[in-house]
């Protein structure tokens, strides 16, 4: 329940991002603000502050003011409000994590059921595809796909996804994790296929479509649902990693990974730029994992004893 509460809190905070940016902080978190100013203790100061000591080298973004109206967590090297970007970044990170998990679980469920139910050539072909995809380290595959697609976008017949679109990381992340969900679904379907009620349905002449949708799907769905929160967490972490490497969410849009990347060059002087999204990723991932465990326990109490999904 605590995990659910934390997740709801995070969700609410990222939903109000536009309200915070426009009505409280009065800032545009997607536009460079290199010559901007803000107010600290009644004094107007530049957002990017030139060094006035020693040889006077370097320009440092303003640090946390701990005032929600003025650069609560300070500025990044473009002079943008880090807290406002953190909220917007959370929207993208959670959106990508959730939507890619939906796509991943949906595609994996369908392919897993088809492979497990029909067996034979279909199973062989699908299983080998899963093997090939799974043979690549997940991050290496995701990075390779991102590098290729981010320069030219995704063009599949009439479908065109631009290089800067959020749908690119969504599709890439969903694709690389399909085998992770599909293989257990396939195993479960193979097991179900031998069960009496399926054999009875086959014997009574029910169509494959009817058996898959009315008999197999309802019995595999709980496993897929158990996977779902875990996949959201996995996918969010993958998105953060890709964005950290500049091959996920593209600027000026933000995700927690891109903000960590923005903060990398400011670790010595403005560590909060990288720390804040890092902390948010940890809290969200832990909450999703705990929630996943709870969902698993609710759907499959025996699994609690096995200590595995």
């Amino acid at each position: 329940m605590i995990a659910l509460g934390v997740l709801i809190l995070i969700l609410l905070s990222v939903i109000v991002a536009p309200f915070y940016a426009h009505d409280i902080a009065h800032t545009n978190p997607f536009t460079s603000n290199l010559n901007g100013t803000t107010v600290i203790s009644g004094r107007t100061v530049p957002v990017l502050q030139p060094n006035t000591q020693g040889l006077g080298l370097g320009v440092t973004p303003i640090g946390p003011t701990w005032d929600f109206r003025h650069y609560f967590l300070g500025a990044d090297n473009q002079g943008r409000d880090v807290f406002a970007r953190l909220l917007y970044g959370g929207r993208n990170s959670l959106f990508i994590g959730t939507v890619s998990a939906i796509i991943c679980c949906g595609v994996a469920a369908v392919l897993g059921m088809l492979a497990g139910y029909f067996g034979g050539v279909i199973d062989w072909v699908l299983s080998r595809i899963f093997d090939i995809v799974w043979a690549f380290p997940v991050y290496l595959l995701a990075i390779s796909l991102s590098v290729v697609l981010l320069t030219s976008g995704l063009n599949l017949g009439p479908v065109h996804v631009g290089p800067g679109s959020l749908w690119l990381p969504i599709v890439i992340i969903a694709a690389v994790y399909v085998p992770y969900v599909a293989r257990p679904v396939r195993g479960l379907t193979m097991s179900l296929r031998e069960r009496e009620f399926i054999q009875a349905a086959i014997g009574s002449g029910a169509s494959d479509w009817r058996i898959l949708t009315k008999e197999v799907l309802p019995n595999t769905l709980p496993s897929v649902i158990v996977f779902f929160p875990l996949m959201v967490a996995f996918n969010m972490l993958t998105e953060s990693a890709l964005s950290f490497l500049s091959i996920g969410v593209q600027p000026p849009a933000a995700s927690w990974g891109t903000i960590i990347n923005d903060g990398l060059g400011l670790l010595y002087t403005r560590p909060w730029v990288a720390l804040a999204p890092g902390i948010m990723i940890v809290i969200t991932a832990v909450s999703l994992n705990i929630l996943g465990d709870g969902v698993r326990d609710a759907f499959d109490p025996k699994a609690k004893l096995r200590g595995a999904v």
Partner: peptide, 19 residues
């Protein structure tokens, strides 16, 4: 030199910097 170290070097190691 990375930008986030410039101020530190400028303030503490000025005699060792050559611009």
């Amino acid at each position: 030199i990375p930008s986030d170290r410039l101020a530190e070097l400028s303030n503490k190691y000025a005699s060792q910097l050559h611009v």
